[in-house]
Design a protein around this nucleic acid. Sequence first.
DNA 1: ATCGGTCAAGAACAATCGTTCCTAAACTGG
DNA 2: CCAGTTTAGGAACGATTGTTCTTGACCGAT
Lengths: 168, 168
Amino acid sequence: MLIVGRPRGFDEEMVTAEAAALFTTRAYDGVGVDDLVRHLGVHRNSLYKTFGSKRGLYLAALHWHISHALQPLIDRLHSGRDAEQFLDNVIQKGDLDLLLLAAVERAPADAEVAAVVARALQLLEQALDDVPILRSGRTTGITPSELLGERLRVRVMSAHAGTAASAG
Amino acid sequence: MLIVGRPRGFDEEMVTAEAAALFTTRAYDGVGVDDLVRHLGVHRNSLYKTFGSKRGLYLAALHWHISHALQPLIDRLHSGRDAEQFLDNVIQKGDLDLLLLAAVERAPADAEVAAVVARALQLLEQALDDVPILRSGRTTGITPSELLGERLRVRVMSAHAGTAASAG
DNA sequence: ATCGGTCAAGAACAATCGTTCCTAAACTGG
DNA sequence: CCAGTTTAGGAACGATTGTTCTTGACCGAT
């Protein structure tokens, strides 16, 4: 027994990570299965065999995002090491953009996403509560709302930057 | 001259307002033209004749939202009348949710939306800067980021509420 | 009453959506 | 080498996407 069959030609976690990257750039409905197949290099059948559905892949990507982007930030906040750098990466580089998109766009339409995002925000809030962060010279608390809100603004300005440089 | 032809069977601004309501609940790609036709009571041809495309209708709805939801808030902030009530409606009732969705989901994909949203956030920031708002007993400034970020959180929690009442 | 114009109603368009089916390929245990 | 099991490849599914075409209803001016 314990017959395995043909081995996989892809790394499941790597595929999940790249799917997360795709779902970060465009919204859920804006990413087609064709896009996923193209960018991930994995064929339809394998995706459906592994993740069950497009939604399953999205949920996997969301969980990966929380484990590999949110959790490290929370850890740093609790330890105090490089916390500011991580927070800056959230705001400037968009390290939590998938969570941001899930919160604004997906959560109202998908109850499971709403639950996952709510839990994530709760964990983030606890981490931010425990460790007041040095912000712009003053020691003050910062909430998940402020963090994601600030990221939201930078994201919009970044999208606007490439459009009109001379506009007021 | 000045021949008019058959009169319209719908109010353009009312249709724009209802479209705004639809684009607030679901994301842009999540709202089909069929949905618009169904909920607005206006037929395809009329929509395309009036707004040119689905995107045109969305942009009209976004502009309407800014004129009829954001601008009144800005006016109240400058006059100081009922400002807190309006801010609370933004956070609790989601009076700026279309702007929130446009900022997070649509702006990165549509340059014109990015420009409109950036301008809107700029106007909101000026209004919030001019008039410090009394918040939770303390007089302190509030930024658009904090406002929309707080709304984001309430929105997620609201979506999560109907799902699991006993979950921690 | 007839023409020029706009609007309404619905069928129809090609394209894309998420998903499934079928067959060949690649591996392990007998 | 053959049976058994899993993945890869690609065509194909019905449904829905945004958009356009066709036909007829309605209005103001001649």
